[in-house]
Design a protein around this nucleic acid. Structure first.
Lengths: 207, 207
DNA sequence: GTCTATATTAAGATAGAC
DNA sequence: GTCTATCTTAATATAGAC
C-alpha cells in the first residue's frame, strides 16, 4: 500500500515514517510509560491529535515501532551455517546494536518494562525471546556437528549455550549504555572465542 | 537511630519497613514511572500523605528502596579467595536472585529505566555498575594466580571476564522473568564451568 | 489529514486539622 | 504521625471545524 513514492498515500506514509523515527527515540529515552504523545508530536512537527490520527493510540504507536524495528533486526540474522559463522553473525549483530544507541535503548528499556503481564508489549516481548531462543538453538544444533567431535555435540545443552549468548548480548548492551567507556566488545569476544570449548564439554559438574 | 526495638521511634520504624516492602513490590511491577504513591499507600494500609511524611517525595522513597536492597545484596558477596570460590559466590548470588522474583524485577526494571541521564536513579545505577565491575575484576585478579598458569593470567582481560559474568547474570535474570520455564541456571553453569578456560586464553583472534 | 478545544483521569505534592 | 481536602500539572483520548 504505502510503497508508492507518489500517489494518494505518499504524504501519509512520509508522516508515519517521521513519527515512527521520533517515537523510537522518545520511547527509548523515556520508556513506554514516561514517553508522552505530546513530546513525540512536538518533535515530529505536528499536533498530538495528528499523531493519534495515524496510529490510533499510544499503545498502537508503541507496537508499530517495536514491530518495525524488530523486523529490520531479524533480516540481518538467519545466515551462517557453520559454527564459526554463527559466532560471526552474533558478533556483527552485537556491534550494530552498540553502534545504534537509540535502538538499543529502546529495546533495553521497553523489554524490561514489559516483563510484567498486562504491559502493552508483554506478549510481543515474550514471543520475541521465545522465538529468538528457539531459532538460535536450532541454528547452533545444526552447525555443531560439522565442527565438533561427534560424541560431544549431542550431549551439549545447545539451548543453554544459545540463552547464554543472548544474555551476554543483553547484559553487555546494558553496560555499554550505562558506561560508554566499558569495553563490552572485548568482553563479548571472550565468550565467542570460547564457544567451541563450551559446546564440547558436558554439563553437570558445578551444580 | 531506628535500631531500638522499643521507644519513641519503634512505631515509625515499623511503618517505614512496611512501606519499603510494599514499595519494592510496586516499583518492581510498575517501574519507577508507572508506580504511584497511591497504590503503595493503599497496599501499606495508609494514605498517600502518610507515605510522603516518611520519605518526603516519590524519588526519596525510590532511592531508599534501592539503597536498602543494594546494601543487603552486597553483604552476601565479598567472600571467596580462590577462583572456584568466586564462581560459587556468583552462582549462589544468581540462585538467590532467581528465587526472589520481586527483587530481581525491581532492579531489572529500574536499572533499564535509569539508563537515561536525568532519571532519579541514574547516578545510583551508574555508580553501582562501576563499583561492581571494579570489585569483581579485583577479586578475579587476586584469585587467578593461585589456580592458573602464571604466564596466562597476566595476559587475561580480567575486567572483560568480570563484565561477561555480570552480563550473563543480568541477561539470564531477564530471561527468567520473561519465561519461567527457561533453564537459566543451566545456562549460567555453562559459563561458570568454562571460567578457568576463559581466563587461560589470550584475547584477540576473533576481532 | 490536521488543527484547536476540551473531556476525563490521574499523578505528586502541600495545607492544616486532629 | 496520620488524616482529608485541595492545588497544580500533565497525561490520553475525543469532538468537530476546516
Amino acid at each position: 500500500m504505502s510503497s508508492r513514492a507518489r500517489g494518494p498515500y505518499a504524504k501519509s506514509a512520509e508522516q508515519r515514517r517521521r513519527i515512527l523515527d521520533v517515537a523510537q527515540d522518545v520511547f527509548g529515552r523515556r520508556g513506554s510509560h514516561g514517553a508522552s504523545l505530546r513530546e513525540i508530536a512536538d518533535l515530529a512537527g505536528m499536533s498530538q491529535a495528528g499523531v493519534l490520527h495515524h496510529f490510533g493510540s499510544k499503545t498502537g504507536l508503541l507496537m508499530a515501532v517495536l514491530e518495525e524495528r524488530d523486523q529490520a533486526s531479524r533480516q540481518q540474522a538467519d545466515t551462517g551455517a557453520t559454527w564459526d559463522e554463527q559466532a560471526q553473525v552474533a558478533r556483527s549483530m552485537f556491534e550494530r546494536a552498540i553502534a545504534d544507541r537509540g535502538l538499543t535503548q529502546l529495546f533495553t528499556t521497553v523489554t524490561a518494562e514489559s516483563i510484567v503481564p498486562g504491559h502493552p508489549a508483554h506478549d510481543f516481548t515474550v514471543a520475541r525471546y521465545r522465538r529468538t531462543a528457539a531459532e538460535f538453538t536450532a541454528a547452533l544444533t545444526e552447525a555443531a556437528p560439522a565442527e565438533l567431535e561427534p560424541d560431544a555435540a549431542p550431549a551439549t545443552d545447545m539451548e543453554g549455550v544459545a540463552r547464554l549468548v543472548m544474555a551476554a548480548m543483553d547484559g553487555l548492551q546494558l553496560q555499554a549504555l550505562l558506561d560508554p567507556d566499558a569495553d563490552v566488545l572485548g568482553a563479548f569476544d571472550i565468550l565467542l572465542e570460547a564457544l567451541p570449548l563450551l559446546a564440547s564439554r558436558s554439563p553437570g559438574s558445578t551444580g
